[in-house]
């Protein structure tokens, strides 16, 4: 499965990129994160405290247990500060 992974705010800064295309068989978001961490230490820094990171799956808020079935885009970012 090929998915677009997007990063925003300090997650983007710590990962060192705003987006990338990833080929993965991870069944859930949590396993996708584990896979990323195993690829490069920068992800380990970015995903050190998952309680500070939110997830959107195909532009809708999800969580780390959300399954990656027929998913095109995943985004990781800190809690939002709009308004």
């Amino acid at each position: 499965m090929i998915i677009e992974v997007l990063y925003f705010s300090w997650v983007r800064e710590r990962v060192g990129r705003s987006k990338e295309t990833i080929e993965t068989d991870a069944p859930t978001i949590a396993q996708l994160v584990d896979e990323l961490i195993s690829r490069d230490p920068a992800y380990g820094v970015a995903f050190k405290d998952l309680s500070q990171i939110k997830v959107a799956v195909d532009q809708e808020l999800g969580d780390f247990t959300t399954p990656l079935i027929n998913v095109c885009e995943v985004a990781f970012f800190p809690p939002m500060t709009g308004g």
């Binding site: 925003f8 800190p78 500060t81 709009g82 308004g83």
Partner: peptide, 25 residues
């Protein structure tokens, strides 16, 4: 406003004296 504050995907960074700091919720 409560929805916008905590659920709209915006992030603010304050830059002072050349240093940036992300606003925390």
């Amino acid at each position: 406003m409560d929805c916008l504050k905590s659920r709209a995907p915006f992030w603010k960074k304050e830059v002072s004296k050349g240093l940036g700091k992300w606003v925390e919720p």
